[in-house]
């Protein structure tokens, strides 16, 4: 148990944009309950500066939450060359959908690609399983 265990993890607010990934989609075709689908879905892609702000390392888990829900997913650095601090990317999946607000302003269309979350290091907490989401 390291000293870091006793420090509170910094929490930052981010906007999430969801996207499609052909590898995750392929895993979904094979089995929604498979390890690959979970591994490729339960991920948030962050700007390197946001990773620093969170005092975490790439590959560690983070708690992502808002009024709609809470999930623990793996934090990865995004491959984007351009800075996108304040914006995180999540592949479209039950993990991102746990966080999509249900308000639609009467339009019937939720904000799948534009919603706010707070993110905090999960200190080794395990990734939320599909069963835990429901």
């Amino acid at each position: 148990m390291g000293f870091g265990q006793f420090l509170s993890s910094p929490e930052i607010k981010l906007k999430v944009v969801t996207f499609r990934d052909v590898f995750q989609n392929t895993a979904q075709e094979s089995s929604r309950f498979g390890e690959d689908y979970c591994k490729l879905s339960a991920v948030i892609k962050l700007d390197p500066k946001d990773i620093v702000k969170l005092s975490i390392k790439e590959g560690e888990t983070v708690i992502v939450k808002n009024k709609s829900g809470k999930v623990v997913v793996k934090a990865e650095g995004s491959e984007s060359e351009e800075s996108h601090t304040g914006i995180a990317y999540m592949v479209n999946s039950p993990w991102s959908n746990a966080l999509v607000p249900d308000e639609t302003g009467g339009s019937g269309v939720p904000s799948f690609k534009d919603f706010e979350v707070s993110v905090q290091g999960a200190k080794g907490e395990r990734i939320t399983s599909l069963r835990d989401i429901f």
Binding site: R32, S68, G69, N92, S93, P94, N97, A98, V100, P101, D102, P110, F112, I133, F134
Partner: peptide, 9 residues
């Protein structure tokens, strides 16, 4: 249940 916001689904 997979494609809708969880709170709705």
């Amino acid at each position: 249940l997979s494609s809708l916001p969880l709170s709705v689904a």
